[in-house]
Amino acid sequence: MNWQLMWDSLPTLLSGLPLTVQLVALAEVLGLGVAMGTALMRLSTSRIADAVARAYVFVFRGTPLLVQIFLIYYGLGQFPVIRESVLWVFLREPYWCAVLALMLNTGAYTSEIIRGAILSVPHGQMEAARACGMSRFLMFRRIVAPIAVRQALPAYGNEVILMVKASSLASTITLLEITGLARRLIAQTYAVFEIFILAGAIYLALNFLITRLIRFAEWRLTPYLRARA
């Protein structure tokens, strides 16, 4: 193990951290929107909306992210129709292709988490809310959302961790995030172990931090479960 090399490579690898965090954050924020829309479509009474949402979740959960990334980056770019459209402003950039793939991927998984959480809200509580004369929106804001969020949080935390790991695949479409930089460093130094172990450690630290943040959020959201001092 060449410790000096590891130490020297650390700044380079860390310089990829902002891009990794950016990709994950953007994909998560946009993906959450997609997921909510999809979950609502799945829960709606419209058969068509349900079928569309079902198909989207089926395709994106049933195929590897690597295929999705290549399909979006190399596959879509193949068609002149797309290259001549407004979409090309985004799809031209590997950055937005990665965000799009990660967003659609996490959106599919997260929509199922949200759907499960909403379904887990006890029916009696909604009846009670209605009996109190709450409007649909008020009921959603005061009753459904708080319970569902608490219910979804642990699974959602896992999903964020999976996204952090998945963002490493952005390196396959020329992006230089942590893994992309690691591969470039290896091409220069041929020190596979040192660099991949170091990169792994950075991901581990990042994921540890995220796990803590989610735990903290869970703790904040469940004051009633804490033992009274």
Binding site: S168, F193, G200, Y203
Partner: peptide, 12 residues
């Protein structure tokens, strides 16, 4: 294993 990208595990 659950905190490190699969790609890195496979490469290693």
């Amino acid at each position: 294993i659950r905190g490190v990208p699969e790609l890195l595990v496979i490469y290693l």
